Amino acid sequence: DHDVVPEDKFQETLHLKEKEGCPQAFHALLSWLLTQDSTAILDFWRVLFKDYNLERYGRLQPILDSFPKDVDLSQPRKGRKPPAVPKALVPPPRLPTKRKASEEARAAAPAALTPRGTASPGSQLKAKPPKKPESSAEQQRLPLGNGIQTMSASVQRAVAMSSGDVPGARGAVEGILIQQVFESGGSKKCIQVGGEFYTPSKFEDSGSGKNKARSSSGPKPLVRAKGAQGAAPGGGEARLGQQGSVPAPLALPSDPQLHQKNEDECAVCRDGGELICCDGCPRAFHLACLSPPLREIPSGTWRCSSCLQATVQEVQPRAEEPRPQEPPVETPLPPGLRSAGEEVRGPPGEPLAGMDTTLVYKHLPAPPSAAPLPGLDSSALHPLLCVGPEGQQNLAPGARCGVCGDGTDVLRCTHCAAAFHWRCHFPAGTSRPGTGLRCRSCSGDVTPAPVEGVLAPSPARLAPGPAKDDTASHEPALHRDDLESLLSEHTFDGILQWAIQSMARPAAPFPS
């Protein structure tokens, strides 16, 4: 592969990997390779389809078979030569091979799209000592099968071997295949498990690692696999990028399955594409389908809103127990993405979901129960707010008499603000006073009005108090039968009158 990737590009890729991570280095090298001529790309395919690569990765054979028959990708048995050289000459001794072996032994695996480039050397060096003999053996194999790289107009793939297949390693990572398949204008990513390549439709969760975000852009890794992070704060999961590491605690105790298979379609829109997988259930989501939507993949363990709600429900009964003089119970939860139609709101002032922060849900004790107040519409209280300059209440639009249902020339009671006709409430011909108009209920007259088809109010509507207090003497005590009587009149003013009279009014101040 030294004929494909020059030394300066190799060093530039290593520097970019240390600065921005393996995914960015892979993407940059792939983009550079696509700008080369067809001879360089053909050399790339020839390096990929060597015999030892085909033996190690069985899924490469179907890719090789898909090439046109007129494309010669065979390799000479006596060494490598550029395709432009007409004579089959043995190339001179390859010093770059020693360079590659020494550099890969030092860096474990470079971040390139060629056999030198995919593992994360920093994480491997940190986690190597417990498994040094086995990992050293794996390093000797890295130059042979560490990076199976493929690129063409139909298929483009980048393979990364790992030393996680050490025997006896619980939940060992089998390997990473960062794979971009450009077929019919689409893009897919796969993962390699035990020599087999699994596409998103049959993606397997190998051991402790999972394909957290099938994305090839942005600074985030394709698999949430930063070796420096180790395990999740809650004892979460091992990262795919942690090559040759000792077994780590796999999943939280509440995880239903340690080796679950995540779905390959969004649980909201039932469509495929780039998904984020939940650590607590097999569901996966688009970032845009979450509520609120996320802009980037959160670091650490992530769970959907259903799993978060289940966790909150487990903690909430203990938080609601009476604990005198104790601060509110704080339950730190990872930043969760909410699927459509589901929402768990945190306290005000918290950062938005999706940031690399930890939301704190506070379970406050329930407030003391209070008697429910009568629910009145805002339009129902409008007549009470229509007060004239002299303190006389004006008529609201649409006000109707509670007896006849007519809204023409209605009066407004100064005591309960109900609309009424003087002739309907006082049919006996009582003279109307000039000021202080009161309806039949507030004036103490319980004589029913002779209106055909309208039920008369119940005599129990009024329960006047002592006459010594004029204001308190007109406080009506309405009961269920009074409400039914008012409802039978089918008037809004009657219902409003009952609601206003049912509310307690402050006692009249004593004259000074």
Score class of each variant (00 low, 15 high):
344 V>Q: 08
425 H>R: 05
400 R>Q: 12
369 S>E: 08
352 L>Y: 14
430 T>Q: 02
395 L>D: 05
401 C>Y: 02
450 P>K: 06
351 P>K: 09
288 A>F: 11
497 Q>A: 07
445 D>K: 09
483 L>I: 09
472 A>G: 03
251 A>W: 12
318 R>G: 10
466 P>R: 07
463 A>F: 11
246 V>M: 14
372 P>F: 10
475 E>F: 06
343 E>D: 03
410 V>W: 03
297 I>R: 11
380 A>S: 09
430 T>L: 11
420 F>S: 02
404 C>Y: 03
297 I>G: 12
488 S>W: 03
444 G>T: 00
390 E>Q: 10
506 P>M: 03
373 L>K: 05
282 P>S: 12
301 T>V: 09
339 S>K: 15
273 G>P: 03
510 F>V: 02
448 P>C: 06
273 G>E: 12
426 F>E: 07
465 G>L: 11
381 L>C: 07
401 C>F: 03
289 C>A: 12
382 H>G: 04
315 V>M: 04
340 A>G: 10
257 Q>T: 05
253 P>H: 06
329 V>W: 13
269 C>Q: 06
480 R>Y: 13
436 G>A: 04
411 L>G: 13
491 T>Q: 02
431 S>N: 05
474 H>F: 15
443 S>P: 10
500 I>S: 04
495 I>Y: 06
352 L>E: 12
304 C>P: 15
334 P>D: 09
487 L>Q: 03
442 C>P: 01
376 L>Y: 09
365 P>L: 15
410 V>R: 02
491 T>H: 01
297 I>W: 10
417 A>D: 15
346 G>P: 10
468 K>P: 08
380 A>C: 14
382 H>I: 05
266 C>F: 06
385 L>D: 07
322 P>M: 09
292 P>C: 10
489 E>W: 00
336 G>Q: 14
241 G>S: 11
448 P>M: 13
344 V>G: 12
274 E>Y: 03
408 T>W: 15
399 A>G: 13
409 D>H: 04
483 L>E: 01
314 E>G: 12
377 D>A: 11
436 G>F: 14
472 A>C: 05
423 R>D: 08
335 P>I: 13
243 Q>K: 09
298 P>D: 13
472 A>L: 08
353 A>Y: 15
498 W>I: 03
484 E>Q: 02
330 E>M: 15
246 V>D: 01
492 F>P: 02
398 G>T: 13
485 S>V: 12
352 L>R: 06
